[in-house]
Design a protein around this nucleic acid. Sequence first.
RNA 1: GGUCCUGUGGCCGAGUGGCUAGGCAGAGCUCUGCAAAAGCUUCCACAGCGGUUCGAAUCCGCUCGGGACCUCCA
Length: 501
Amino acid sequence: MPLKIYNSLTRQKEVFEPLNAPYVGMYVCGPTVSGESHLGHARPFITFDVVYRFLLYKGYKVRYVRNITDAGHFEEEGKQAEDKIATKAILEKLEPMELVQKYTHLYHWAMEQFNNMPPSIEPTATGHIVEQIEMIKKIIADGYGYEANGSVYFDVVKYNDDYSKKNQPYGILSGRNLDEQLDTTRELENQEEKKNKVDFALWKKAPAEHIMRWQSPWGEGFPGWHIECSAMATKYLGKQFDIHGGGMDLQFPHHECEIAQSTVCNHQMPARYWMHNNMITINGRKMGKSYNNVIKLSELFAGNHPELTQAYSPMTVRFFILQSQYRGTLDFSNEALQASEKALRRLMEAYEWLKAQSFTAGSNASDPVLDSQLKTWVNELETFMDDDMNTAKVVANLFEIIPSVNSLKDKHITADAVAGDTWIFVQKQLELFIEQILGIKVEQGANRQQLNGVVDLLVEIRKDAKTRKDFATSDKIRNQLAEMGIQIKDEKDGSMSYTFI
RNA sequence: GGUCCUGUGGCCGAGUGGCUAGGCAGAGCUCUGCAAAAGCUUCCACAGCGGUUCGAAUCCGCUCGGGACCUCCA
């Protein structure tokens, strides 16, 4: 079955056909490193990590570009040109680049915790000032940009007039009508520089107190909000590439402006497939600074935030996110995270056990119904991914498969119920989907080996105690280990196993 | 005010016009020295009101509720 992707541009699922198969170019808007990443940021990066992994599995040679915004944008345009990063730097008494470095490290640390694969290229805005200036020059030369007082703006109205004739009006991605926007866009102060209030900045003149500043043909200043993505995507992926991803909240104005800029420079729509992940909400509200409901990733992993009743591991969070389809909102709650934590543990315990088994090919199934049912569930995994990355359904099917694995483990069924080839197939595909595609890894703490040795010893002692019918001792060992988060289980064959909770 | 999305069982979440989503929680059973785990079984649903249809959670309309974007935002 072919891979289908929901294209925000056309508002429908489309068969994915790369421009230059087997090569695929994918650009995803990365973070602004002026602060620590929060739970909301985790969603796009995990979502597109899975997209990346699945495309690789499909055999594509993917160049995945994810930028880092370290140049700082003005928060309130016109009113008081304010560089986000510079402002925070003064507050924290850090040099801007020192601050950028700090948060970049934290961001990379979080990505690693989530087991996200690094992108092929991770360009920074400050490293591409020249490319951005060149692009702005081109936009001005073509008549779609104009200078005013050392700043440069994009002429949205002219662009819209000209490109509407080419079926690419401004607002094509977000479904906005420019005339309506001209009526409804909020009035901001100091807008006299702009021809129209919908125009956006390509280059901004730096006020005296602004720390981050670069020389340009229009004086000292810094790049506008949207130009970096256009410049870097063009540089590394070409004039047109396959997939552009990001959060839904970037659809307007960020991606809309990106389309306008790139189209003027390159004469074509920059990306063919636009993918947008939906928001993570908390108590029904989008997580965001303006709502004051942000849970930082470090707080999430440590459990030190008023909204949290406990800590949640990176894999729990990843699994939580993958249990939903990326285009729907996902509501955070302790109850939901705890459910994911338990579900993930059950999944991984069964999976790890299965992985360690060896099966013999060639044997027949004594339960052909179960045998074919298992094969169906396994085969559906790829079908669900093909259907716009429906990880929710993939996970649901994994839980259809798990009971059979556990039944085999607990000897509720015998190995010959299912053909050896089928078990081998299940083994192989679960590894593929759980580890390679969903990117879920087994979480192990530090010093795990030593700890294993200690627990093994205690298990031995308990076994002896049980043999002597000294249940007081055996219970003491089991209960106290349980309190420390190590759970002992008496298996059917008299052996004991344990898991770290 | 404008544009758009959404409302599924205690919680989180899939979903095709007709067939059990799944997870967590709850109940029962099996196994077990007791537990835990696991397996099996089971309870709980499609905001409300109309309409289309042989048949709708799924299409249409209205009502009510929630949210997003229009300003930095994943």
